[in-house]
């Protein structure tokens, strides 16, 4: 009887010791990591547009049925051309918004006449985001010329998976974690254009 109690006590003592050690180890471990990470920020996924090759995996590999990746227009880089290679199909015959002339398969690029300048009509090109599926076709077309369109993860849609499925499938490894406070990446060129306008 006494031996049983002793054993009980011993077991409790050992358990208590192990617990204390475990708790301290956990606390120390967390403290170490927290200290090292400092004020580590939340990260989000983003595409580096200078590395992106517009392979199209963004449209198909996102865990969302409608990808969180969409095309973005850098208006500062767009020359508002009439014959826009990001808008018109390669085989287009006229420069109208008719379906047979359009490049975008879902009709998500909008072309709006702005003004005629120096005898040449100028158009603004917008991305209609709800229709864009992130296939990058317009991006590829635009890249043949000024390259004002580029793909970005749209954070109002992205669920910020701990492991982004597109990042794994990305052939150019253009997907990377960026700080949540700066959740978008610009093309170097687009950045330059933005700054040029700003200055």
């Amino acid at each position: 009887m006494t031996s049983a109690t002793n054993r009980q006590d011993r077991r409790q003592f050992l358990g208590g010791g192990a617990r204390t050690v475990g708790a301290m180890a956990l606390a120390g471990f967390s403290g170490f990591l927290a200290g090292r990470s400092g004020k580590a920020e939340e990260t989000v996924w983003q595409i580096d547009p200078d590395v992106c090759t517009t392979c199209g995996n963004c449209a198909t590999y996102c865990v969302l049925d409608e990808s969180a990746v969409k095309a973005v227009q850098c208006f500062d880089l767009c020359a508002m051309c009439d014959p826009c290679p990001g808008y018109f199909d390669l085989s287009h015959q006229e420069r109208t918004t008719a379906a047979e002339n359009q490049l975008c398969p879902t009709g998500a690029v909008l072309r709006t006449f702005i003004a005629e300048q120096a005898g040449v009509p100028r158009f603004e090109y917008y991305i209609e985001e709800k229709d864009c599926i992130g296939c990058g076709k317009c991006v590829e077309g635009c890249a043949m010329m000024n390259g004002s369109l580029y793909l970005q993860v749209r954070h109002d849609r992205c669920v910020n998976c701990n492991q982004c499925a597109i990042a794994i499938a990305c052939p150019s490894q253009a997907f990377r974690r960026v700080p949540a406070s700066q959740p978008y990446l610009m093309k170097k060129k687009a950045l330059a254009a933005t700054q040029r306008r700003g200055s």
Binding site: G56, P105, C135, I168
Partner: peptide, 22 residues
């Protein structure tokens, strides 16, 4: 599961910018 994107469910033709012909 095709995780690497190599052989993946590719986009249908319509979504591909077809410049090779040119």
């Amino acid at each position: 599961i095709d995780r690497s994107g190599g052989s993946g469910h590719r986009l249908p033709e319509k979504f591909v910018y077809q410049i090779d012909k040119y």
